[in-house]
Design a binder for these strands. Structure first.
Length: 548
RNA sequence: GCGGGCGUAGUUCAAUGGUAGAACGGUAGCCUUCCAAGCUACACACGAGGGUUCGAUUCCCUCCGCCCGCUCCA
């Protein structure tokens, strides 16, 4: 992450996102808002293409998953049952010496002798002598008392000196030079049994417990009292569990079957970072895939392979995805197995999607807490049971960012006439993800027949795909502009358009074009910068095939 | 949340305790027969608030934001 080239690349991507209108800072004119981002005209197209393709892959291309769109606000009881309310409000403590943070309930109780210091005496600024050396006879050193309480716990029998050593480290981290500390002022010492106020690793005092709640709390209705509390959802999954019975009933599906949802979720992250990667408001694409008890592990494997192939289909190569088998110690408490699919971002290898075998934890919790039966009745086995769930859960914003990082390329191009070299910036999105599919240009804007024909083509293509029309400046400049926007194709209406092909040629669709027979246009490819002539009539079909 | 760095047009960078410049980019017009050509004109910036000062973009403080390292990420 400290790699300057990687940092530089990320900076360039951020600048490009702003320059071309992919991503802006939220509330920018008011100084921004930490952890929130807006998608501009191109960004929203890219994001929509991603979500639409995921939706199509899940709900249209297979018949065992149905779609769903749950509300963001839900009954507070949902979050109590799911465990979010309890686990998101765990108190945390911080080591005053190392600044490391721990869950308060995971601190091992310690016994020993606690030494409480009121503060320290330091040499006044200007004292010329280091206090750690032997005092020079006759030299007066001015001392000042600084009040800064700190406490250390040492095992019984250990001398105060070991407590002093830790305390001195603490004062040094607070900015007092080791050689200026004359003495520490001990307030008291006392034996303590089973205390959790000290760091078991180094004996240093811990801060009082503070609550870090990662859910955004809000109030339903006009009165902001305890009974009105609920939360913005921290994940989209729960709505699908809560509505499991309704969806099952109306969709007439048998196990295994899944529910798919795309939507916003909110987490009050302590420290949003890395552009849009960790945001407080973000979007998820999740499937809750319900399977027969005992078959969770095999479905976990199937989904891992399925999802890897999917990322490849949106232009993220398999080689850039790292599959992390999350070790049991790091898994969420409900998980019986988790894969993280991680992408090589410029700022490090980071998670795009988590695929978790959640067992029947969620349905069981909601059945218990709501008192409503959520079992599935298996007609074949004539048995009622709670299904297990495998959940592929992908981050939309993270994947958009991965698409941008993967697409970003700089290359040196040489002008053939002048021999001058320059840098071309190009976003190599796969066509199906590209925000704009094709640029339409008249070669020259002061030739009315070229403009009219280009406008005609624009109108013809607009119902089929996102098109950009541009007539300003030189043709080369317009090509470069769409390169930076990641538009895979450019079509130029030129003088040859009306003449027909000069010599018989073959169109992109393989149909042969007789001389003077058809109107043709120049088709320019973003990645290779190669050009070919194509029959005007073939353009829609050619492009539709290329972007599907 | 802690520590460090940084905030000047859209971008990349200047300068300055007293009228803020450039390049590229943008817009408009002219021109231009395929890869950021040229000419002309125009628009656009000192992150916010407070303090010191006759006067602050510049010095000081607070806040906000971005980047980096920790931390955090049921």
């Amino acid at each position: 992450m400290a790699d300057p080239a990687a940092v530089g690349k990320m900076d360039k991507i951020v600048a490009l996102c702003k320059r071309r209108g992919f991503i802006f800072q939220s509330s920018e004119i008011y100084g921004g808002l930490n952890g929130a981002w807006d998608y501009g005209p191109l960004g929203v197209e890219l994001k929509r293409n991603l979500k639409d393709y995921w939706w199509k892959s899940m709900t249209q291309m297979r018949d065992d998953i149905v779609g769903f769109d749950g509300s963001i606000l839900m009954n507070r009881a949902v979050w109590q049952a799911s465990g979010h309310e309890a686990t998101f409000s765990d108190p945390m403590v911080e080591c005053l010496l190392t600044k490391k943070r721990y869950r308060a309930d995971q601190i091992e109780p310690q016994s020993g002798t606690a030494y409480y210091y009121k503060g320290l005496k330091i040499a006044q600024p200007g004292a010329s002598q280091a206090l750690t050396s032997e005092p020079t006879p006759g030299l007066q050193v001015l001392l000042k008392f600084v009040e800064l309480p700190f406490a250390v716990l040492v095992p019984k029998g250990k001398p105060e000196a070991s407590a002093q050593k830790t305390a001195r480290q603490f004062y040094v981290t607070r900015g007092y030079a080791e050689d200026k500390i004359a003495s520490l002022e001990l307030e008291k010492s006392e034996p303590l049994e089973n205390t959790t106020q000290f760091n078991p690793e180094n004996g240093a005092e811990l801060s009082p417990p503070r609550t870090f709640n990662l859910m955004f709390k809000t109030y339903i209705g006009p009165v902001a009292d305890e009974s009105a509390i609920t939360y913005l959802r921290p994940e989209t999954a729960q709505a699908m569990f809560v509505q499991f019975k309704n969806v099952l009933e109306v969709s007439r599906k048998k196990l295994p079957f899944g529910i798919a949802q795309v939507g916003k979720a909110f987490r009050n992250e302590i420290n949003p970072r890395n552009f849009t990667f960790r945001s407080r408001e973000f979007e998820q694409m999740e499937v809750e895939f319900f399977v027969k008890p005992g078959t969770g592990p095999e479905w976990l494997e199937k989904w891992k392979e399925e999802r890897l192939a999917w990322y490849e289909s949106i232009g993220i190569p398999r080689a850039k995805i790292h599959v992390l088998t999350v070790p049991e110690a790091d898994r969420a408490f409900y998980s019986q197995g988790t894969y993280d699919l991680e992408y090589e971002f410029p700022f490090g290898i980071q998670e795009l999607e988590g695929i978790a075998h959640r067992g029947n934890y969620d349905l069981k919790q909601h059945a218990e807490k709501s008192g409503k039966p959520l079992e599935y009745f298996d007609e074949e086995a004539k048995a009622k049971y709670l299904p297990e769930v495998v959940e592929p859960s992908a981050g939309v914003d993270r994947t958009v960012l991965a698409l941008l990082c993967e697409a970003y390329a700089e290359e040196t191009v040489k002008d053939e006439e002048s021999g001058k070299e320059e840098t071309r910036i190009v976003l190599r999105f796969v066509p199906r993800m590209a925000p704009v599919k094709v640029g339409i240009f008249p070669l020259l804007k002061n030739k009315p027949d070229l403009v009219a024909k280009a406008r005609e083509l624009q109108k013809a293509l607009q119902p089929l795909m996102k098109v950009a029309y541009d007539e300003a400046g030189s043709i080369g400049k317009r090509y470069r502009r769409i390169d930076e926007e990641g538009t895979p194709f450019g079509i130029t209406v030129d003088f040859e358009t009306f003449e027909g092909a000069k010599t018989a040629s073959t169109s992109a669709t393989g149909a042969s074009i007789a001389e003077g027979e058809k109107e043709t246009v120049t088709l320019r490819h973003r990645d290779s910068m190669k050009q070919e002539r194509i029959a005007l009539a073939d353009v829609p079909a050619y492009l539709l095939r290329a972007i599907s």
